[in-house]
């Protein structure tokens, strides 16, 4: 335990960098098409410096996680998709199996019943939930 904690502390600088890479990668994957560094920066939450975003993009490019092509004076970036579908199959086999699977892998959201779905839609639209009245704001940001 102690040793791994120490390791985590040592790696905290690197981990922050890793987290930024994830954020940028997630943004590129969510986009409909290639994004320039400026566009990526605009979509990232928080105020990251343009140069930071550039650095991360070029590092991802070096790792082969994104491809880039010329657009105007700069580059537009797009995630590489070669392995994504292959990985998906493996991930599904990892997620299969009985209740002991859940002990190791908790999914972000569990499955919904029809009633749950209705309830969620009500919550999302702020129906009958006073705290949810002003909740549209995050979307408009």
């Amino acid at each position: 335990m102690d040793r791994s904690d120490e390791g985590a502390r040592q790696a905290s600088g690197r981990r922050a960098r890793g987290e930024l890479e994830s954020d940028v990668l997630a943004t590129l994957w969510a986009a409909r098409g290639p994004l320039t560094a400026r566009e990526t920066q605009e979509r990232l939450p928080g105020d990251l410096a343009y140069t930071t975003v550039m650095t991360i993009l070029s590092r991802l490019h070096d790792k082969g996680m994104v491809v880039r092509h010329r657009e105007g004076r700069g580059y537009a970036y797009e995630p590489t998709r070669d392995e994504a579908s292959h990985t998906a199959q493996r991930m599904h086999s990892l997620l299969e199996g009985g209740s002991d699977r859940e002990a190791v892998l908790a999914r972000f959201v569990s499955e919904l019943s029809a009633q749950d779905e209705h309830l969620l839609q009500q919550l999302l639209s702020g129906h009958g939930e006073p705290p949810a009245e002003s909740e549209r704001s995050p979307r408009n940001r």
């Binding site: 890793g18 987290e19 890479e21 790792k63 995630p79 392995e83 994504a84 998906a88 991930m91 599904h92």
Partner: peptide, 11 residues
């Protein structure tokens, strides 16, 4: 795949 924290799958 990749040496990043995040791995994205097509699914």
């Amino acid at each position: 795949p990749g040496r990043t924290e995040l791995a994205v799958v097509d699914d």
